[in-house]
Design a protein around this nucleic acid. Structure first.
Lengths: 152, 152
DNA sequence: GCGAATGAGGACCGCTACAGTCCTGTATGT
DNA sequence: ACATACAGGACTGTAGCGGTCCTCATTCGC
């Protein structure tokens, strides 16, 4: 029903992997090999993450990516936002808005904001450190690259 | 970042409209005219909602749809689930799952479940009645039919 | 200084799934 | 009997996502 884009999912997986590899810079191809995610895609996601200040990049030989902050200081929200970006948000604001407002004053808007906040808060409370923590008392591992991960 | 499908959005808007029109059955074309959503689409969404027990349908002349339950007994989660369906959920379960589990044991899985629950809970707590309530102390009305409504 | 390694940034493209439409059948009330 | 309205499915166009590739900039080792 509510879905997370595949790339955003990748983003979280990649971040957790880099967080697990401590201080040494992780090259894109190394992370790709470890996570089994196609390398060009990994590169794309990592670039987005570094552009948004979640990763630091180091060029040249033995370069790669390192976390820009401590895992506990990075929320899942940030990761998702960095990869997927705040698309569509503007469409609701700068769009015509007249097609609906004419008859119905869209009373649902206020509630949507409430829902938005609730979800955002739930995501904000989970940091990258929480993702690394061994919460995997859970049965079978899921593929990180299935089509789309259901959220709710 | 996390998006709601357009049809699910429609679902909520349509439900609130029908809830506002009390006991009288609302014909699909009437709801379409009121909400400015194309009629075939309205029909499609209403059919889905009734198939999932959120609406009751009445055929024949003067037929239409009525709420199956009180607005306070219908959660937003149900509406979204009825329209969008639990797609992709299975992909995570019945998929190969081996592409990832080989090297990384996908430690993120446990956290995802936690996030899922948090979001689900946030949505469950909001009923259709809450959506109708005059929470619209908010500035401008949003179009109900923009491309996609951002959630977080 | 030169070359290899690696990230940066964009262009491009196929495919899937969503959104929308239409058609035929069925039920109900006048 | 007929008009109205829902039921259920088939069909289709398309936007956006996921993925690939290419070129340039930067850094390190030799």
């Amino acid at each position: 029903m509510i879905r997370l884009s595949r790339l955003a999912d990748y983003g979280v997986v990649l971040m957790t992997h880099i967080a697990g590899d401590a201080e040494r810079p992780c090259a894109a191809h190394a992370v790709a090999a470890a996570t089994r995610i196609p390398e060009p895609t990994v590169s794309k996601v990592l670039k987005a993450l570094s552009r948004h200040g979640l990763l630091e990049s180091h060029r040249g030989v033995n370069g790669g990516y390192t976390l820009a902050r401590a895992p506990s200081e990075i929320s899942v929200t940030e990761i998702i936002a960095a990869v997927d970006g705040p698309i569509a948000m503007t469409e609701c604001l700068d769009a015509d808005g007249g097609a609906c407002s004419l008859e119905t004053f869209c009373p649902t808007r206020g509630s949507w904001l409430k829902i938005n906040n609730a979800i955002r808060q739930a995501l904000d409370e989970i940091s990258l450190a929480d993702m690394i923590a061994p919460t995997l008392l859970f049965p079978p591992p899921a593929a990180p690259g299935e089509r789309r991960r259901l959220i709710s």
